Simulated assay, not measured.
Amino acid sequence: MSIGIIGSGGLGSNVARALARKGLSATISNSRGPASLALLVEELGPSIKAGTVAQAASADVVLVAVRLEGLAKALGGLPAWHGRIVIDGTNPVEFLDPDSPDAKDPTNPLAAYGIKAIDLVGKHSSEVFREFVPGARVVKAFNHLDVQVLSQPEVSGGQRVQFFSGDDAAAKAEVRKILEAIGYFAVDLGSLDVGGRLAQLPFGPLAATNFIKI
């Protein structure tokens, strides 16, 4: 089963590192083109190659590792998904310019972390996300932990817990296989409406909860 990654920031690059450490193949992409990823793929080794967004999006399983506000630009114009599996790694947060007024807003409890919550008017982020990938089978994963720990699924003599959720049982089973092959202890949180809310940053009850299965 082929894996594609759209987005090469902290989320996309650290998932690629985790895949590379197990010798698992993937194509990683970004909006700047494959040449901009030369140093990253050199670091990661032969199992990870750079490609265009269209090439990454043609994989059997595609991780979308871009910010919520960037989905239209990242996914616009891609071919139909036709039931392929798309992993939603988004959260409803906006990343703030440290010199902006928002970064110093005393009414924002997250300002010290450089983010603020995006009001989705009662929706969770996967409800918004799936509008950009019509025909895809969406599974939520890789969104609830600090991106810096994603490349370290095995730690302290155990396995880091990775939550996932979705509405298609077969799609979730395939994502579970990938998570377990990477080295995570995969925990199914149920449907997107349930699990998406539980693990969604910044205010989901399980958001940023870093469990280790010993």
Rank of each mutant, 00 (worst) to 15 (best):
L40I: 12
L68M: 15
S47F: 07
I5F: 03
T27N: 12
F142A: 05
Y184S: 04
V62Y: 01
L75F: 12
V139K: 09
G76H: 14
I182T: 06
I212F: 10
K213S: 09
A56G: 14
A59H: 05
D88F: 12
I3K: 05
L110Y: 14
L63N: 08
N14V: 04
V62W: 07
A111T: 02
G135H: 08
R160N: 01
K104I: 07
D193F: 12
D193E: 15
A117T: 15
L44S: 08
L120C: 09
L19K: 10
D102H: 07
A208I: 14
S100L: 00
I87A: 03
G83Q: 12
H82L: 01
W81C: 10
I28M: 09
I28D: 07
A103C: 06
G114Y: 06
P205S: 09
G77M: 13
A26R: 10
N108A: 03
Y113D: 14
D88P: 05
R137Q: 09
L71K: 09
S25G: 15
A141W: 02
Q55N: 06
L198R: 08
S25P: 12
E69D: 15
V147G: 01
D167E: 08
D119C: 01
K116L: 03
V86G: 04
K213T: 01
E43H: 10
V161C: 06
I178F: 05
V64E: 00
G9A: 08
L75K: 10
D167Q: 09
G183V: 03
K104E: 12
R32E: 07
V128F: 00
A65C: 08
A74C: 13
D97I: 14
L40V: 11
A16H: 01
D168H: 15
L71C: 14
I48L: 14
G190S: 15
A207Q: 11
S31P: 12
D88H: 11
V121I: 01
V147E: 04
R137G: 00
G195V: 01
K116S: 03
S125C: 05
K123W: 11
V133P: 02
A18R: 00
I214P: 09
P202V: 00
L96F: 06
A18K: 11
L19N: 12
F163Y: 15
P34L: 15
V133A: 01
V93H: 06
V41M: 13
I212W: 08
A169Y: 08
I5K: 00
V194P: 00
L206N: 02
A57W: 08
I178L: 14
L75G: 09
V147N: 03
E43T: 07
I214M: 07
F132K: 13
K123D: 12
L189D: 04
G4D: 11
A171P: 12
I212E: 03
P92C: 05
K116I: 07
G157K: 00
R32L: 13
D88S: 04
H124N: 04
V61Q: 05
A103Y: 05
A136Q: 04
G157M: 07
G204H: 04
R130N: 10
L192C: 00
G89R: 07
A26M: 13
A170Q: 15
